[in-house]
């Protein structure tokens, strides 16, 4: 699998949280290449299945398909658009972004604000807040009203690009990188023997509170749930110990959200196969699908692996493509290692 190609394909659809029901189809087509059957549930989770039906072991892999975005909240008399946030947006990245309003047709626009020349010096030192900004489509107000309604979603224009040494940059890599990792894992499984029934889930609405994971893990109620998400990669302005290095393999989480036996198994497989990995201590809420999965129904043994990603929730999120492959291979080897005894042991403390 050409990771970059699949990633580009995954990025070809804009999926702000809440748009999954309408837009899941593009993912379904990609999933069909790697899964035996694919379905879409009521909230728009895409659920692919691979492996023996009704096997003794059911594994759920979850990576969210949704991305953060904006939403039209008001259109003023001159056709300028005011917006609300979908998910955790850093308002400092907004000035001068190019956006697309998904109205009756796709309307391009730019995020504008009062020019710096017109601001007092102390005003210029302050970050712009969302109420200081608006979207300018360049269209007359009547035309804006024809094309755009309150509640239409807005996405950032995509400009993915390849950097040096296998680095890749773009928006929505959180968490299409996770989806790509799961697909890579499914392909790797073809080379291995495994007895589990694997559910690959591209979850909906993670960015607004892992809502898709809540319902899909209820529905599937797997024996093991693994979330594949992103974590903070090393950046020039952040202490080294707070981040994980790009290109050095997945960060395997441990902490209360993680079943200790799953952490140990993932770690020992990585060591046995010389797969690079990093340890990611999570003292409390992980803020990922794993947090929701773990307390579904009577509880699900849960794990989390993360792809190091720089500049999360900006339009220039940056990762190393190798990490996707390494993580996908680790997951495949993990699944291949599972047997009923191990799974039963997960309920024995």
């Amino acid at each position: 699998m050409d990771v970059k190609e699949v990633l580009m394909e995954l990025l070809s659809t804009d999926i702000p949280s809440g748009c999954e029901v309408d837009r899941a189809q593009s993912l379904v087509q990609i999933f069909q290449r790697y899964c035996e059957d694919v379905s879409v549930d009521k909230l728009g989770n895409v659920i692919g299945r691979k492996g023996a039906k009704n096997a003794e072991i059911k594994v759920m892999l979850a990576a969210h398909m949704d991305e953060i975005g904006l939403m039209v909240k008001q259109i003023d008399d001159r056709g300028f658009i005011r917006f609300s946030y979908i998910g955790g947006i850093d308002h400092r990245i907004l000035p001068a972004q190019e956006v697309i309003i998904h109205g009756r047709e796709k309307v391009p626009g730019v995020i504008g604000s009062k020019p710096p020349h017109m601001q007092e010096p102390e005003e210029r030192n302050k970050a712009l807040k969302s109420e200081d900004m608006f979207i300018d489509t360049g269209l007359p107000a009547e035309r804006v009203r024809e094309l755009v309604r309150i509640g239409d979603v807005i996405t950032f224009k995509r400009k993915p690009c390849e950097l040096l040494n296998g680095c890749f940059s773009g928006n929505a890599l959180d968490d299409r990188a996770g989806v790509a990792t799961i697909l890579y894992c499914l392909e790797e499984l073809d080379k291995l023997q495994f007895s589990a029934e694997v559910y690959a889930v591209a979850t909906a609405q993670e960015e607004v509170g892992f809502r898709g994971a809540i319902v899909s893990s209820y529905h599937l109620y797997p024996d093991i749930g693994i979330a594949v998400d992103v974590c903070h990669g090393n950046m020039a302005d952040v202490a080294e110990e707070e981040t994980h290095k790009l290109g050095k393999g997945p960060a395997i989480a441990l902490g209360p959200n993680i079943h200790p036996k799953l952490f140990n198994r993932l770690k020992s497989i990585a060591e046995d196969y010389n797969i690079p990995y990093q340890v990611n201590p999570e003292p409390s809420a992980t803020g990922t699908d794993a947090w929701a999965m773990q307390i579904t129904r009577q509880g699900i043994p849960t794990s989390l692996i993360s792809i190091p990603l720089r500049y999360m929730h900006t339009t220039v999120e940056t990762l190393n493509l190798d990490d996707i492959k390494i993580s996908g291979r680790l997951l495949a080897l993990f699944i291949s290692s599972l047997d009923r005894g191990f799974v039963e042991g997960l309920r024995c403390y």
Binding site: L43, N45, V72, K73, I150, G151, R211, V215, Y218
Partner: peptide, 24 residues
């Protein structure tokens, strides 16, 4: 009718849509 984008607060739909396997 009007369309509502509410930036604060939630409603019962918040709990209902996450019930069991999900409710549109």
């Amino acid at each position: 009718y009007q369309l509502e984008v509410l930036e604060m607060g939630g409603t019962d739909a918040g709990a209902i849509h996450l019930s069991r396997s999900g409710v549109p």
